[in-house]
């Protein structure tokens, strides 16, 4: 893109794509903003006029809001912790030369290709069902009382399901990071007298720090929006109502579009704050 001419030609050629993307994004966004300032109850009178910031205040002050925020944070935090820790361990393991490496790597990545709805249903019915689930059989085999996972340990169950889905992503990114480490650095550390654990702590972990940050940020954006897993398992009951789920309930179950839209705007702001950090870190990565 050296000359003035080629630059303007490039702009013209990019214009249709940019236009489509803008419309694609801007239309829903403006509609959400538009509804968030209205009292709009489709089945109870329809559009009841402008209400200013009423919806925003009501959404935050409702008794369901703070528990939902807390649930969201617990799920996001729990999944991040599990996927990052297990991801590092798995990546270390997969980096070792071993028999059948190719097949094992594909198996590890596999869960990522399963749709969230499907995997949640599989977990719910095949593993966590208190009567017929595999876990129930296992518990009974050891003479224990089967746990009704989704009602008694609902939050933990959902964290488990979502972690299972996101572990491959974390593992894959962390594995590529480990593989990019110069093996001479590890050998130098070995000669410098660092035992394996210290080599991990002083050499491997700092080398992976950027990859870990990227995993955390990308996952956070997606985890803030998890929905299907909750919808098909607990339906938001037993303390598993996240912010996303709360918005869904406001719009579709209570048929209050204005209130739901206000929640949606909060969610957009939250996701953008995370995205901002992500851009800066990824950008820095590209500069270096």
């Amino acid at each position: 893109m050296a000359t003035q001419h080629s630059r303007s030609a490039a702009r013209i050629m990019m214009a249709p794509a940019v236009f489509v993307l803008l419309v694609w994004m801007l239309v829903p966004l403006t509609m959400t903003l538009y509804f968030s300032f209205k009292k709009y109850l489709p089945l109870r009178g329809g559009d009841l006029g402008w209400v200013g910031f009423d919806n925003y205040v009501r959404f935050v002050t409702s008794s369901a809001f703070w528990p939902a925020v807390q649930t969201t944070l617990v799920i996001v935090g729990g999944v991040l912790l599990i996927t990052v820790v297990l991801g590092i361990l798995l990546a270390l393991l997969l980096d070792q030369p071993m028999w059948g490496q190719g097949v094992v790597r594909i198996l590890v990545i596999a869960p990522f290709f399963v749709m969230p709805t499907v995997s949640a249903l599989v977990w719910k019915n095949m593993f966590m069902d208190p009567v017929n689930g595999l876990f129930a059989h296992l518990w009974r085999f050891f003479g224990a009382e089967p746990v009704s996972w989704l009602s008694d340990a609902s939050l933990a169950s959902i964290i488990m399901i979502v972690s299972w889905q996101w572990l491959p992503f974390a593992t894959l990114i962390l594995l590529t990071a480990i593989q990019s480490l110069d093996s001479e650095q590890l050998e130098a550390a070995e000669m410098d007298g660092a035992p394996p654990l210290k080599r991990f702590y002083h050499i491997i972990l700092p080398h992976m720090s950027r990859a870990i940050t990227i995993v955390i940020l990308i996952q956070t954006i997606f985890l803030l929006a998890i929905f299907a897993e909750i919808f098909v398992t607990t339906g938001g009951a037993f303390g598993t109502r996240t912010l996303t789920y709360l918005i869904y309930q406001r719009v579709l179950e209570s048929q209050n579009v204005g209130l739901g839209s206000a929640g949606g705007v909060y969610a957009i702001i939250l996701a953008n704050i995370v995205a901002l950090f992500l851009m800066r870190i990824v950008g820095k990565n590209l500069d270096a």
Partner: peptide
């Protein structure tokens, strides 16, 4: 080492 292998 040839690549120096410093800890970056």
């Amino acid at each position: 080492f040839q690549s120096y292998a410093l800890y970056p």
